[in-house]
Computed example of a mutant assay.
Amino acid sequence: MGKAAETRMTILQKAFELIYINGYQATSIDDIIATTKVTKGAFFYHFKNKEEMGLAVINEMMQQTMGKMLLEPLLTAENPLMAIYHMMEYLLMQEPYLHIKYGCPTNNLIQEMAPLNENFSKALTKIMDDVLQSIEKAVERAKTSNLVRADVNSKQVAIFVSASYGGIRNLGKLYENADYYRAYLNELKDYFNRLE
């Protein structure tokens, strides 16, 4: 990776952290510059404005990381339902960049920016489409392997799992108590057992 690419990645990583903690609207270009030690000229060399930078955070960091680390393994797992469960467990209990008091970065941006900015809404919809489709495909694979009943509606499972994850992240954020996560994971496991 060349110096320009490293600078761009540094900006995106720090922007992601600040947006996750403070929200997109409360994070200024000056905040990002101050914490990255890049010049204003360097920032504007890579991004013409804050919106372009915010969309790059979504498209280049959040979506790609989610796809490679979390969603792709669902499509090849021996037991797709357990893979979904372990993905949720990892996101809630183990992922070092996700903190209980800040909730889910994707959820936060959906709530904050989707109603206000069409470009953000489209980018965030793409992330959620990928999540829903990957879970749906994983459940379909589980059905063909006789790990899930044939009558189970894979799309509905995907919607339920995604929506319940967003909801539990919000409860964790509000109460700052991982016991809510543990209760969710127990219920999720029971739910998956009922699909067999």
Rank of each mutant, 00 (worst) to 15 (best):
I58E: 00
V152D: 00
M62Y: 09
E78A: 14
M53Q: 12
I168E: 01
S164G: 05
D179S: 14
D130S: 12
K50V: 03
M62E: 06
F160I: 14
I19C: 10
Y20W: 04
K68M: 03
A163H: 10
V152W: 01
E112W: 07
Y24K: 15
N107G: 13
P96L: 08
L109H: 13
M82D: 08
D129G: 05
M53Y: 03
K143P: 05
M82V: 03
L124C: 07
Y24H: 13
A26G: 08
Q94H: 10
V38H: 12
K143R: 08
T76W: 12
L70C: 04
N170E: 14
M69I: 07
T39L: 06
N79V: 06
A5Y: 14
G167A: 14
A77V: 02
L71Y: 09
G23W: 02
S145R: 15
S134I: 01
T10E: 10
N79H: 15
I21Y: 15
N79T: 02
T36L: 05
K50D: 00
Y181H: 05
I21D: 13
N107T: 13
S164Q: 15
A56E: 01
Y20E: 05
S134Y: 08
I84M: 08
I110H: 13
E112V: 04
N193V: 02
H86Y: 12
T65W: 09
E60W: 12
L74N: 02
Q111D: 02
K173Q: 12
D30G: 07
K137I: 02
N108L: 13
I11T: 00
T125M: 11
E196F: 06
L147T: 04
N186H: 11
L147A: 08
G167N: 14
Y191W: 04
L91C: 09
